[in-house]
């Protein structure tokens, strides 16, 4: 599992913590720089008929804006920068990891868990600050028969607390599993040699395409679930 190794590039120790700049931090930096470059260059000469790069920027923007509007409503647009950032960060984290010699920042549970917990805590804080004590009504769906209400509240409470876990595990597991699978299959190419090595080679080719798709879909799923949690916090169902 050498591809998941965290290697320090520059040592940095602050207050007893090892905050070294690592290969993981390097790829986070790449993600930031790539986004900044894309949006800076794509929107430098804003034209009514967009250039190709401007189209990409517009498509990304519209995609996120539509997702936020559809899930949270017009008032949710103030969370658009956050959701957009999240989407770009996860997307680039996933995709840059598929490049040769790349490192997948989202294949580390601590990264996805930090994001997920931050989203969950944030959504909960927004929910309580907007609705106060009433936010607990989220745990009891409308039209529940009184007989099953305690049972349902228990389930809803559990599902609410499981949200950060499922959110972080989904992304982490998807990214790690894909990379492990590619690694194992690629190992077969060498061990089967010239005679049969082409069979896993074709498999690796196909799975690489699949992984690109998974990278895109997981970024979308992550951002979409964030929207759904924010919708619960903003609109209470």
């Amino acid at each position: 599992m050498e591809q998941f190794e965290i290697k320090p590039l520059f040592d940095l120790h602050i207050a007893g913590y090892d905050l070294s700049y690592t290969n993981s931090a390097l790829f986070m930096t790449f993600a930031v720089i790539a986004s900044a470059l894309l949006f800076w260059s794509a929107t430098r000469n804003r034209t009514m008929v967009p250039s190709r790069w401007q189209s990409i920027a517009e498509v990304l923007y519209e995609f996120n804006a539509t997702m936020v509007k559809d899930n949270i409503g017009k008032q949710g647009l103030k969370y658009l920068p956050f959701v957009f950032t999240l989407f770009l960060f996860v997307l680039l984290g996933n995709v840059l990891g598929l490049m040769p010699y790349g490192f997948t920042i989202t294949s580390h549970i601590v990264v996805t868990a930090t994001l997920a917990v931050a989203i969950w805590v944030g959504a909960t804080v927004i929910g309580f600050s907007r609705h106060g004590f009433h936010y607990f009504s989220l745990l009891l769906p409308k039209g529940t028969p009184p007989a099953v209400a305690p049972f349902l509240v228990l389930i809803e409470t559990m599902s609410y607390f499981i949200r950060p876990v499922s959110l972080s595990l989904r992304l982490f597991a998807n990214m790690m599993a894909g990379h492990v699978l590619l690694k194992v299959l690629a190992g077969f190419i060498i061990s089967l040699g010239l005679l049969f090595g082409w069979i896993p080679l074709i498999a690796v080719f196909g799975i690489t395409l699949l992984e690109i798709m998974v990278a895109l879909i997981q970024a979308y799923v992550f951002a979409l679930l964030t929207c759904i949690y924010l919708n619960d916090a903003v609109n209470l169902h």
């Binding site: 913590y17 690592t22 986070m28 949006f39 950032t85 770009l88 960060f89 994001l115």
Partner: peptide, 20 residues
């Protein structure tokens, strides 16, 4: 490696948030 990853995650996420 957790402190370093969390630290740089926060830093780069804030940077990306500012860009966006």
């Amino acid at each position: 490696s957790f402190p370093s990853q969390i630290f740089w995650l926060v830093v780069s996420f804030i940077a990306l948030y500012l860009v966006v």
